[in-house]
Write a protein that binds this DNA or RNA. Structure first.
Lengths: 333, 333
DNA sequence: CTGAAAGCGCTAACAC
DNA sequence: GTGTTAGCGCTTTCAG
């Protein structure tokens, strides 16, 4: 195991000179630096577990959900956003795959090299919360659980997003709406964002005194066809649908088309999903954007602030914005 | 910054006892361990940049490609496989997003906490190769560049995969075949796996003395329609198609259907993609499986062996296997 | 089973 | 611009 003194000997300088030559923390003559670098290369030197006085590890861990029902591209967008933002703050990102679950967090927090933690796929009652509250390691959740006190959470305001979709449909005259949601297991887990969207959707429909139903739905063409048929059969007056299930968007549009339902002439469709997915769907969808990149960036900002000792608000909610595209129109006569 | 001596004082024991109580490297009485753990919790102690004699960081870095033309779900599968395998070897995974490129690798290798490196999205002439060869940090590539000596590479044998698809089609009697490939930028970058598939495909077609063409293709319904029309127009005798572009699979099947081409009656279709994608396509596809999980696992195995000093072979190629499904049949009369 | 003390590799004051 | 040296927080002998 080659150490800094070896490099120093080889380069004919003192250890501290090597240290400074590598860190750049004080000026070193070109000649000396060159010799040091040569020695480093020749010996294959790598700085070791930094001496105590050194800078912290500058690593933050990211707990990514990789379980049934989560949509991989969206999760990946979050992860990339977090990684990019972390780099901007001179941090690296440690990948913590779910399945390690609580244990993974404990491990990283206690013995791991991370000095901060970003947690995704938060449930309303999440088994990780007690640990996160107790941990000396600062953490930020992407997603807002039922009891966020003592934590730092950031998310799109999914409740408001659900309301926004309904308000939009009501403004167009629709009087019966349905929510085609995420796969059932997502609700079973009480995943925060999915539950809150349902709450907002239902509350807005009740407030407007219009009919509403909610349908968890697995992805895939088969499921899309089944749900489309069922909606048309069970709710003949249905003219407005909100989709909160990205991989289901195109299959659902197809299914309606096959059943002779035209969008937006016969049925208005609204989605809650990342903007590109809405824009590039078979029919460009009026949608509330899930700003994955901004959420990831915000989470990292909050985290680095927390790591530097500044207290952070328990909940940061981003206001939803609805973008009109081709999939919504006035209620048919 | 709370240190081990603080914990020791609080627990009324010596620093070394705290150290051993936490590492478990020598037996500690239950009573003492309890007191130590209590002190740790109360003070929020976290082990620091480990003392020099301590174990290595046990982190390996993963360079993931997040650029145009790569298919996110597949990349994510690799990443998850790598992370899981790494955990099995008691390592954590540091996410290195491309875009940092060569610089990212240099940083992690020189000052970063990683002690091993997995590189994805390898190009035939990859700018990172000289660095990887020179680095004291052991690395493994998923993908085989043109000159793999001095490196450690693992991949599916994409050349053989291309041949296998053609052989299968020829055995069914087809005499004109086309390859619908990855997006153009993938070939422009000279991405190794894409290029090698083309080589194998072309070589096999030549060997069988049958007509063959290759078409890079962007994803999306529009592009699929365009390429389908073009294939039918320019090659009237075409009856066999190989797709190597996962997000294009369904759109391409749709496009052919819209053009009145039945699969497999009029046209046989083969894919090179992960098994689930082939199985759940609109028409279940005869395919050569890209075993993402196994590749990720292998890469990590090779890497940990290398890190422990055992030399590793320059190239490990997994033999392709073709699974017949519903999309291929005899050449129509 | 525990403590004292001697390092570990590295950085940062301090001297010149 | 460089070397000397005193730590840093932690682990691991070495004694008991």
């Amino acid at each position: 195991m080659v150490k800094i003194t070896d490099v120093a000997r080889r380069a004919g300088v003192s250890p501290s000179t090597v240290s400074y030559a590598l860190s750049g923390k004080r000026p070193i003559s070109d000649e000396t630096r060159r010799r040091v670098q040569a020695a480093v290369r020749e010996l294959g030197y790598r700085p070791h577990a930094r001496g105590a006085a050194g800078a912290g590890s500058r690593v933050l861990a990211l707990a990514v959900p990789m379980r049934s029902g989560v949509h991989v591209p969206v999760v990946t967008q979050f992860a990339v956003a977090v990684a990019t933002a972390a780099r901007a703050h001179d941090h690296d990102v440690l990948l913590l795959t779910q399945g390690e679950g609580v244990e993974g967090i404990r491990r990283v927090a206690e013995t791991g090299p991370a000095d901060g933690l970003v947690v995704m796929d938060v449930q309303l009652q999440d088994p990780r919360l007690p640990l996160l509250r107790a941990l000396p390691l600062p953490s930020v959740l992407i997603g807002v659980p039922a009891e966020p006190d003592g934590l730092t959470c950031v998310d799109l305001d999914f409740g408001a997003a659900g309301e926004l979709c309904v308000d939009h449909l009501v403004r167009l005259g629709h009087r019966t709406v349905a929510l085609v949601g995420s796969p059932p297991e997502v609700y079973v887990r009480r995943t925060a964002f999915a539950r809150r969207l349902v709450q907002g959707f239902t509350a807005a429909a009740d407030r407007h005194r219009i009919g509403s139903t909610v349908h968890p739905c697995a992805p895939g063409r088969g499921a899309a066809r089944v749900i489309a048929e069922r909606l048309l059969r069970e709710q003949p007056t249905l003219t407005g649908v909100v989709v909160h299930n990205e991989p289901l968007i195109d299959p659902l549009i197809d299914a309606f088309a096959e059943l002779g339902v035209r969008i937006p002439d016969d049925l208005s469709l609204t989605a809650v999903c990342p903007a590109p997915a809405a824009a590039s769907a078979r029919v460009p969808l009026t949608s509330v954007t899930v700003p994955s990149a901004e959420l990831g960036t915000r989470a990292v900002h909050l985290l680095v602030r927390k790591m530097s000792g500044v207290p952070a608000p328990a909940v940061t909610l981003l206001a939803p914005r609805l973008t009109e595209r081709a999939s919504t129109g006035p209620r048919p006569a």
